[in-house]
Write a protein that binds this DNA or RNA. Structure first.
Lengths: 210, 210
DNA sequence: GTCTATAAGTTGATAGAC
DNA sequence: GTCTATCAACTTATAGAC
């Protein structure tokens, strides 16, 4: 995982990309705007202002306000996928370690990038049809990664699970929904939330149907 | 629970209120608009149109577009609270029955009213300061109801739970997040989702820390 | 109570100076 | 590449006819 600012991250990239510095500033400004007022209520002027640019400059780097949103949402999902794929694959019979790592990674990523994550989750319906379809494919990949861990664990006998599909959705619900609760100045930190999610989900897989 | 339409509910009220029929129609139209396009992207003309009224008629019944949203969100939360308060209180030592009923009620309500629920959850940040504060109080009441069940169960020894506060948040995450997954024509019904949520959450309370 | 007309302001996006 | 100026369209909310 990148050394993300645990207090509040408003950067547009995990640090592994090639986008003009000004475009990055626009993405960062857009995250701040969208997170506080929502996509529709944020004007292109607001975004340019946040990036210390004037009204028309946005259109040098992005075809439209919607293209900017797509870039932002698409990169957030890509970064989650990259973080999950960086985890060591599971030895047969040791799927619990991988699943715990996946839950921890997901929770930490969403807490550490809670502004980007909130925008990426909340403003999804504002994407154009083909852009939405592209992000849906990324989301399907993330779901598939988790499901294969759960299914493998069930087959090797270390997990019990009535319905892996519903369990994976519950996992994503818990790990993503922290962006709605999480408050950087609050009582709970990323570790607390990750531990809670691991406890609840892993306990189920150990004791389901008993 | 009221006999809600399990396919798709777009009515504005649980059936227990005193609002002019035209105002109800406006609320119902607003739910359809907000659910499909979002609050900011829905114009007052869209809403009036959906209610078979002309441009200015909205302002006879609501001070502003934001007041209409508040009415809608506030009523959704009130109905959830009413449904939870209708459950029989727990005998000491039998808190599991109440918690299971609460989880089932929450999941079913959000599935049966998934359009209203989606609007009430998603468009919350568009409320004015004082209106948002009022809804936050309702949400605190819902959280407190669940927490008292969990805490009572821990004290009577039928539950184990490392942190009731985090567990209640996880419960709400799971029961509410179904509005993002749920598809009326899809493979899973309200009963499936409720059973899955009960399984995951109750299994944890029975086996936590073992 | 519902309608049409309109006010007053804002929007996304473009054109052309520098 | 960035700026300012501007377009055409659309927004919420109000006023006054019926």
């Amino acid at each position: 995982m990148p050394a993300a600012n645990a207090q509040e991250d408003a950067t547009a990239d995990g640090g592994q990309d090639s986008l003009p510095a000004t475009a990055q500033r626009l993405l960062t400004g857009a995250i701040a705007c969208f997170a506080s007022k929502g996509y529709q209520a944020s004007t292109t002027r607001d975004i340019c202002n946040e990036a210390d640019l004037s009204a028309g400059a946005l259109y040098v780097y992005f075809e439209s306000k919607e293209h900017l949103l797509f870039e932002l949402v698409q990169r957030a999902h890509r970064d989650v996928l990259v973080a999950l794929e960086a985890l060591a694959p599971a030895e047969p019979g040791a799927e619990a370690d991988l699943l715990v790592a996946q839950i921890r990674t997901l929770t930490h990523w969403h807490v550490d990038n809670h502004l980007r994550a909130r925008v990426a989750q909340t403003e999804l319906p504002n994407l154009r049809g083909d852009h939405l379809a592209a992000v849906r494919r990324q989301r399907t990949s993330i779901e598939a990664l988790l499901r294969s861990t759960v299914v493998a664990g069930c087959e090797s006998g270390v997990f019990r699970c009535a319905d892996p599909q519903l369990f994976v959705r519950a996992t994503l619900s818990l790990c993503i929904d922290v962006i709605r609760w999480y408050n950087p100045g609050g009582h709970y930190g990323a570790d607390d939330l990750a531990r809670s999610n691991v406890d609840i989900l892993h306990t189920y897989l150990q004791h389901a149907g008993q």
